[in-house]
Design a protein around this nucleic acid. Structure first.
Length: 287
DNA sequence: CCCACGACCTGTGGGC
DNA sequence: TGCCCACAGGTCGTGG
């Protein structure tokens, strides 16, 4: 799934065709994704003007002139594409490496000025909500979220508080959206590698002096990925150019059995399973 | 409250 | 070639 850099890349791709424009029609092709769509979803969106397109954690948020906010989470396989006249008009965002299978296009939005925005989601782990703007912060999906990792509240002091006394692994702790909001499996693995911290270490045992470097590593990895449009796994040759490129910069993720890329380290990347998910790390230089 | 694990859903790739 | 299992970017609910 899209983690923060991928969701932000999607946001940047969609913003120009949504912001300030009216939703003229909504075609809903099924009653649910991960959860049922909100009551009267299509009617509540039809005619609404999108004021802005924002992101919080891994959610896309579109405040509307109706007083509601349209929120979308992409789950593991959610993709937005923008088409006009039957062709992809804005290739290049995350996910556009191969055209989506139309059988899994579940919602389509016709936008003023002619764009058509389609939501495709093979596994249907994504979901959409309509939330009153004045109740957004208090909504169950948002009230417990931790700080944005690229924002001012994500600091070593914050991590020190969050890690204190925690016996859960630092890997699982960083995946917890209440601790920091927006990281997923790839970027946690990559950040821990860069900070020289083993994903297996209990969060409470991470040395305090490593917390500053960890914060810096998280930021650096996210920023580097954003620069190249996020990560695209399972790419296909011949894609349109601007698909995500960070998969080419992975230092540990999906590199089991390959040599550690840290200068001078002779380690070999190991794969372990934590909380049911693959972790990749170098047992020699990550402690 | 904290933590581990199964569940949700479909597709793909590797091993036999 | 075909089949079966493991695994995939997330997170929610359950049960210890």
């Amino acid at each position: 799934m899209p983690e923060l850099p991928e969701v932000e890349t999607v946001r940047r791709g969609l913003a120009p065709v949504l912001e300030g424009l009216r939703i003229e029609a909504v075609e809903l092709r099924r009653a649910d994704l991960r959860f049922p769509f909100p009551e009267r979803f299509a009617e509540r969106l039809t005619g609404a003007r999108v004021l802005r397109l924002e992101r919080r954690a891994k959610y896309l948020l579109a405040p509307l002139d109706t007083g509601e906010v349209w929120a979308a989470h992409l789950g593991m396989t959610g993709r937005f594409s923008v088409t006009a006249e039957g062709r992809v008009a804005r290739p290049g965002d995350f996910y556009y490496a191969a055209p989506p299978d139309p059988r899994h296009t579940h919602v389509a939005f016709d936008i003023e000025a002619g764009a058509r925005v389609e939501y495709n989601d093979v596994r249907r782990f994504g979901y959409m909500e309509l939330i009153p703007a004045d109740g957004l912060a208090a909504h169950a999906l948002f009230k417990g979220l931790g700080p944005e990792p690229l924002g001012p509240d994500f600091t070593a002091a914050h991590l020190a508080r969050a890690f204190e006394g925690r016996i859960q692994s630092v890997k699982a702790t960083l995946l917890d959206q209440r601790v920091v909001a927006g990281l997923g499996n790839i970027y946690v693995c990559e950040a821990l590698f860069r900070a020289g911290i083993s994903p297996l270490r209990p969060a409470g045992d991470v040395s305090r002096r490593k917390l500053g470097p960890l914060v810096a590593a998280v930021r650096a990895v996210l920023e580097a990925s954003l620069e190249v449009g996020g990560s695209s796994l399972r790419d296909y040759a011949g894609a349109d150019g601007a698909k995500g490129g960070f998969q080419n910069a992975f230092l540990v993720y999906d590199r089991e059995g390959e040599p550690c890329l840290r200068e001078g380290c002779r380690g070999v990347v190991a794969r372990t399973v934590q909380a049911g998910r693959s972790s990749f790390h170098c047992p020699v230089c990550q402690r």
